[in-house]
Computed example of a mutant assay.
Amino acid sequence: MNERDEQEPMRPEGMDDATVEAVGAVSEALEYVERARGHLYSFHQLMGHADLQLGEACDKLRDAGHEAVADQLESDIVGRNVLYGRWTFQIVEEFDDNYWSVFRDHERRVRDELQQGVRHVFEAEMKERRRTKGKAGHESRP
């Protein structure tokens, strides 16, 4: 076994299994929120791109001699709010300000209070249980 295969325990002294599991569950919930946030940003970019494409499509309809059809489509849909009073950038900002950043602060506070700020204690211990000590590709740390 080499030095890299030796890992100091990440678990703060005196921390019980139930607390490790509970804090891990809070962190996992935040990870799902992070994924949801990524999807929200994808939605934001997709909708913005679609709106620009629709504007170009309206120009093409006009060029093809369909002025009335283009005007109706453009006035009703191009630049339209996706939610009442909101474009997607406003949805993203509201989500970030009112949910995501608040949850991140709470998750950090829980870790600081219960795990002395150490992240991923649950996962680190799972890695130690599941890896094959001394085998290449199973090192505890880089």
Score class of each variant (00 low, 15 high):
residue 87 W to S: 12
residue 5 D to F: 01
residue 10 M to P: 02
residue 13 E to D: 09
residue 121 V to N: 03
residue 126 M to K: 15
residue 92 V to N: 08
residue 5 D to V: 00
residue 129 R to K: 12
residue 2 N to H: 08
residue 87 W to L: 13
residue 140 S to L: 06
residue 76 D to S: 15
residue 97 D to K: 15
residue 50 A to H: 14
residue 19 T to V: 11
residue 79 G to N: 13
residue 93 E to K: 15
residue 46 L to D: 14
residue 102 V to K: 15
residue 121 V to F: 01
residue 75 S to M: 04
residue 130 R to T: 06
residue 128 E to D: 13
residue 117 G to M: 01
residue 26 V to Q: 10
residue 9 P to A: 12
residue 59 D to Q: 09
residue 141 R to L: 06
residue 32 Y to A: 12
residue 31 E to R: 14
residue 48 G to E: 08
residue 127 K to P: 00
residue 115 Q to E: 10
residue 89 F to N: 10
residue 22 A to C: 09
residue 111 R to W: 01
residue 76 D to E: 15
residue 133 K to G: 08
residue 8 E to D: 11
residue 86 R to L: 06
residue 135 K to V: 02
residue 135 K to S: 05
residue 18 A to W: 01
residue 86 R to K: 15
residue 126 M to E: 09
residue 44 H to V: 00
residue 2 N to Q: 14
residue 96 D to R: 07
residue 19 T to Y: 03
residue 112 D to M: 07
residue 137 G to I: 00
residue 7 Q to T: 07
residue 130 R to A: 09
residue 125 E to L: 09
residue 68 A to F: 05
residue 56 E to L: 05
residue 71 D to P: 01
residue 28 E to V: 00
residue 131 R to P: 04
residue 1 M to E: 15
residue 33 V to R: 13
residue 17 D to I: 05
residue 29 A to C: 03
residue 60 K to E: 15
residue 64 A to P: 03
residue 28 E to L: 07
residue 85 G to I: 00
residue 88 T to I: 03
